[in-house]
């Protein structure tokens, strides 16, 4: 059999009876006038802490995917501009991310970046990371560069110092948010979870992620994080909502000693009282979620009860969403 001669700019396509046809690949460098990128928010964390790798400690987290809220970015090159002009103007982290991505893609010029997002800022839903990741993707898309998720993560951290793991979508990873790499891929899918989310400080000002110093954990707390990471592996392997709920609750409790959530102890009791499997919180904002196993009997009543208790504690409404498993609306 003769093998096709492949030049760097051509792709060989095999046809049924091994006749070969070579087609010219489009030149991706300028094939699009506009690059597009999109990234969803997250709903705080399942696990957040400090982890040891080869004797070095890294801050890392496992984000809760939250596909209901997204940021979208459009990017256009302009050879006459040296910098990136961003709209809305206050998205400075995204602007930095676009400029960084351009340089990484070998471009010396600037361009126009337009963001549209329905992710509320400062409450721990990862609005800034969603903007930054969408921006990096849009810019790379415009430049015809296909970035891996790992590269997007690295650029995001380079642009905004600390990024959440949103770029990994609904893949469970332990992401070092200040180092920009993945400490562990948990393989498998999230177990099916039903989460009732709410804002524990609905009238507050929220939090600027970089404005407060990161928690200093004790040796014992770091040991506990290591245990929770191990339990996470089992939770994913067994697709166990109950075990995953434990991971989240323990992480939330340890972190509550560093960044207090209002009425946290009441929330822990609420989990028991309504038969939920755990509580998850955002490390950089007042968002929290009560986690249910969707297979729990009388889920509707339990959620109703949760809503009532949350309203009592915080005077606010809740929202519900699902993670992992086979979601409603997805056919078999």
């Amino acid at each position: 059999m003769t093998s096709p001669i492949a030049t760097p700019n051509t792709t060989a396509v095999g046809l049924a009876d091994s006749t070969w046809l070579t087609i010219k690949k489009p030149d991706l460098r300028d094939w699009k006038a506009v690059g597009h990128g999109v990234c969803s928010a997250h709903h705080g964390e399942i696990l957040q802490g400090m982890f040891e790798v080869n004797g070095k400690l890294h801050r890392a987290l496992i984000s809760v995917p939250f596909g209901h809220l997204i940021s979208e970015a459009r990017f256009e090159c302009d050879e006459n501009l040296k910098t990136v002009v961003v709209e809305p103007r206050n998205c400075v982290k995204a602007q930095a991310a676009a400029e960084l991505t351009l340089r990484k893609c070998g471009r010396k010029h600037g361009g126009y970046l337009t963001l549209s997002s329905n992710v509320p800022a400062r409450i721990g839903l990862g609005s800034s990371t969603a903007d930054v990741v969408a921006t990096i993707e849009a810019t790379a898309d415009r430049c015809g560069v296909d970035l891996s998720t790992e590269e997007v993560a690295e650029f995001a951290v380079a642009a905004e110092i600390a990024s959440d793991g949103s770029m990994f979508g609904n893949r469970a990873v332990l992401f070092a948010q200040r180092d920009g790499f993945v400490l562990e891929y948990f393989g498998g899918q999230y177990p099916h979870l039903y989460i009732v989310g709410f804002n524990t400080d609905p009238n507050g000002w929220g939090v600027d992620t970089l404005a407060f110093p990161p928690a200093t954990y004790t040796v014992k707390e770091i040991k506990s994080f290591q245990m929770l990471r191990a339990l996470m592996r089992r939770a994913i392997e067994d697709r166990s909502a109950a075990l995953l709920g434990r991971v989240a609750s323990c992480s939330a409790r340890i972190n509550n000693d560093h960044l207090k959530k209002k009425h946290f102890e009441e929330l822990e009791r609420l989990v028991e009282a309504v038969g939920a499997v755990g509580i998850q919180v955002a490390h950089s904002g007042p968002i929290a979620g009560i986690i249910f196993d969707p297979a729990t009997a009388e889920l509707g009543e339990r959620v109703f009860e949760t809503n009532a208790r949350v309203a009592e504690l915080y005077g606010t409404q809740t929202w519900c969403f699902e993670v992992g498993g086979r979601r409603r609306g997805l056919s078999k």
């Binding site: 040796v219 014992k220 040991k223 506990s224 290591q226 245990m227 990471r229 191990a230 339990l231 592996r233 089992r234 939770a235 067994d238 166990s240 109950a242 075990l243 434990r246």
Partner: peptide, 17 residues
């Protein structure tokens, strides 16, 4: 006593609860 977290780590990874 504080040294025993790695034991719990391996047990929960292998058998969960």
């Amino acid at each position: 006593p504080d040294a025993y977290a790695p034991l719990v780590e391996i047990v929960v990874e292998c058998i969960g609860r």
